[in-house]
């Protein structure tokens, strides 16, 4: 297009022509695409043709009652251990921020201990706790006891699993919650106090809801990690998903298909958890940007239909707060 053409349109419409430039070529992208397509084809081919995958066996056991029972126990362990972890972790976080050095120090020691030893060792420890304390007494410290229990009966494998996973998780959650509380601007606390909120109300109504934005993403990741870490308790014969699969292949020697069954279930649950996490984060992100973030469906649709114009124009974003 010559300059005189542009000048003509400018004169006619008052607006210069839109730029129609030859796009930059990206040969590297084409090479990468070709390599990925080849690798995918090879993997797909092997999955479809290697008879040792035994997809028939996978399908046969996928909904078997033993696998499903194991899955349910895995979900229960994850939920209970996370609830313990979050609740106790929040307490530890508040303790850690206490001005009393003994209170904050004991929280520090707890985190140091439970983060400093492998989870697998902690699981074995709780399983063998009866060797250390054969009897559990409830009563006045150094005084008479009212309730006696046999530790072997009290701490079943499932109880040991819950204790190990939950108490270990509390140490990690304590750090996450503490970071969240510290991320909230001090001015928020001052404004709330100036309005007459008590310390507790300030924490509950003002600080924690804002801390959630920082706390939630890592908590979602912790939940997903927890789901997978429950597989560790198979070493103390808790029949969760992995141990259920192991029990089956110990008998029929179909190791690979049954490990696939377990893996696919883990993938399904982590996918569902990830979607839930996305919506939770969206809820607690209220007010942090000017636009309500898109739902997952809107995002997928946006990606499919406008991949050429990936930068969706959002008015106002990135501007100064003083419009």
């Amino acid at each position: 297009m010559s300059t005189s053409d542009t000048a003509d349109t400018l004169a006619a419409t008052g607006r210069p022509d839109e730029i129609k430039a030859v796009p930059v070529r990206h040969p590297g992208r084409w090479v990468a695409t070709a390599i990925i397509v080849v690798v995918l084809a090879a993997v797909g081919n092997s999955v479809a043709t290697n008879s040792r995958f035994e997809w028939g066996v996978v399908g046969h056991f996928f909904f078997s009652s033993r696998i499903l029972d194991g899955l349910v126990l895995t979900l229960e362990l994850t939920a209970v251990a996370m609830v313990i972890g979050i609740a106790f972790g929040a307490v530890l976080a508040v303790m850690r921020l206490s001005p009393n050095p003994l209170v904050s120090g004991s929280s520090w020691v707890y985190v140091w201990f439970f983060r400093g030893t492998p989870l697998l060792v902690q699981i074995l420890f709780w399983y063998a706790i009866a060797a250390l304390y054969p009897r559990v007494n409830l009563g006045i410290p150094f005084g008479p006891a009212f309730i006696h229990a046999n530790a072997n009966e009290l701490i079943t494998p499932v109880t040991a699993a819950i204790l190990a996973l939950g108490l270990n998780e509390a140490a990690y959650m304590a750090e996450i919650v503490r970071a969240g509380i510290l991320s909230v601007d001090e001015g928020q606390t001052e404004a709330a106090q100036a309005l007459g909120f008590t310390r507790l109300q300030t924490m509950r109504r003002i600080v924690l809801p804002q801390a959630m934005r920082v706390i939630l993403p890592p908590t979602g990741n912790e939940t997903i990690s927890m789901l997978k870490n429950t597989a560790l308790v198979s070493v103390i014969s808790v029949t969760e998903l992995l141990f259920a699969a192991q029990q089956i292949y110990d008998v029929n020697y179909k190791t690979i298909p049954l490990l696939l069954v377990a893996s696919i279930w883990y993938l399904i649950v982590t996918t569902v958890l990830s979607i839930g996490q996305y919506y939770l984060e969206r809820h607690y992100g209220r007010g942090s940007s000017r636009e309500q973030p898109l739902t997952l469906l809107q995002r997928v649709r946006g990606n499919l239909f406008s991949s050429r114009h990936a930068t969706v124009e959002v008015p106002g974003v990135g501007g100064s707060p003083n419009r």
Partner: peptide, 18 residues
């Protein structure tokens, strides 16, 4: 404190509320 209002230099509005 609830009987004394305060307005801050940096507003300190609660960002998670309308």
């Amino acid at each position: 404190r609830s009987e004394i209002g305060m307005v801050f230099q940096r507003f300190n509005l609660f960002p998670h509320m309308t």
